[in-house]
Amino acid sequence: MTKSELVGRMSAKYPDLHAQDMERLVNTIFDEITDALAEGGRVELRGLGSFSVRERAARQGRNPRTGDTVLVPSKKVPFFKCGKELRQRVNK
């Protein structure tokens, strides 16, 4: 399911709400999560799971083509931990 399919399914459920408003609603949800993570915060969605930002330490990497060693700088990565309820539902 893509985001536009999600909007479509939601619109089918709520025909009284304008499709454009439904699109804005779905965008708001994912934009808010993105903004919170961009600010280094956490997101906890009961039942679904939590999003956080994890630090990856700098490390020695290698250019696979030339074999040169390069220093890969430390970076932050988004991390999702599945919630208990969703983990159980997925594994049924």
Partner: peptide, 13 residues
Amino acid sequence: PKTLTRMDLAEAV
């Protein structure tokens, strides 16, 4: 205070 929840999403919507 920096943890976003369903309530914050509802407020944004």
